[in-house]
Design a protein around this nucleic acid. Structure first.
Lengths: 203, 203
DNA sequence: GTCTATATGTAGATAGAC
DNA sequence: GTCTATCTACATATAGAC
């Protein structure tokens, strides 16, 4: 048992409760930052939701900015953002549309991303590096995929892979903002599909 | 002279100084909200920039949210957003690219718009109505223009005017965000041109 | 119109008892 | 690990003198 605890300290071990607490805090902070932003959301709001005092919360995350970074990284693990796709044979169009529809169903995921991303360009915002890095990685990743499509003769003539990558990311982010303000007037997946079908030729 | 004052009360009239003050406050608030957001920017910051006390500032704008609305409307008048184009004969592509290049040169205009737009989707944000209305008007306006192009046989087959409108707006907003975080890596006007040339056929 | 003074509220973070 | 109490800072807004 003791050896088992040592090899799997997360479950039933001495740190089990601590890990659960951290998880509960991350979930609560996700909701608060999504609904009110980083500057607008308070540690007290988060503590109230998880049912603990604000000072106890700071025992797990030593400062508000630490909590923000942890929430952003946790978001990646929830949405699968940046990780390998479930099906390596899945095409780019299907992968994008599946992700878009998935995000739409998880309450708060799009709010969190949209609100914090724009907020991160403000002075002294602790999330700025996260978003700068994310965009750089995303642009490179999509550029590679469009370049591969071009080699396969499936990218429309005149479309630059780099431009298509930046365009897809920008379109995705922008349509999410419109959707947040008017869900009934915007079809996120349909808009993305419209662009991708414009530049990607059928097999 | 008195009749002249009555017909043009803004210049040299009794309210001339007051109007100048309001203008100076709007410019300062524009900078502050662009750099720190609505929640992150304080009235004290604005007052310091314009060289007056925070309480004197509230003499011109009775509350922080009133100041925000005034800044948003003032922004429209600076950028010409929503007003009639300078040249009615100017094509859609030229108008979009000219506006994009113009905004890029006015420091803070894109920051203000991007930061406040996303922030406005948060709980109880006073700018929400402004942005909801703006998107609705923009979508309708661009939909009309694309529909006209379709009637002229200049819209690519299969492109829906409504989808193209939402796509153009989303792309524009999204590429601005990427540009704010990495100006050297993003070509705003080039990206917009790439999309428009994809869906609009040459005359 | 402009200011000082202040009311009132809230924030993030620390100290230290238990 | 959790709490109460508190520190320090800063916010928006009001009252009222000049």
């Amino acid at each position: 048992m003791t050896t088992n605890e040592a090899s799997r300290p997360v479950r039933r071990g001495p740190y089990a409760k601590s890990a659960e607490r951290r998880h509960a805090i991350l979930a609560a902070a996700h909701d608060v930052f999504a609904a009110r932003g980083y500057r607008g959301g308070s540690l007290q709001d988060v503590a109230d939701r998880v049912g603990m005092s604000q000072t106890s919360l700071l025992h797990y995350f030593p400062s508000k900015s630490d909590l923000l970074i942890a929430v952003l990284n946790w978001r990646d693990s929830i949405t699968g953002d940046g990780s390998t796709p479930p099906d390596p044979e899945e095409g780019l169009v299907d992968a994008v549309l599946r992700q878009a529809r998935f995000n739409e169903r998880i309450a708060g995921v799009i709010e969190l991303y949209t609100v914090l991303c724009a907020e991160s360009v403000t002075e002294g915002h602790p999330g700025r590096e996260y978003f700068t890095d994310r965009f750089q990685k995303l642009r490179r990743s999509y550029t590679r995929r469009f370049r591969q499509l071009a080699e396969d003769g499936r990218l429309r003539d005149g479309v630059e892979p780099e431009v298509a990558a930046a365009t897809l990311i920008a379109l995705w982010d922008g349509i999410q903002t419109q959707w947040l303000l008017a869900p009934e007037s915007v079809d996120m997946a349909g808009t993305l599909r419209g662009y991708l079908e414009l530049i990607i030729l059928p097999e």
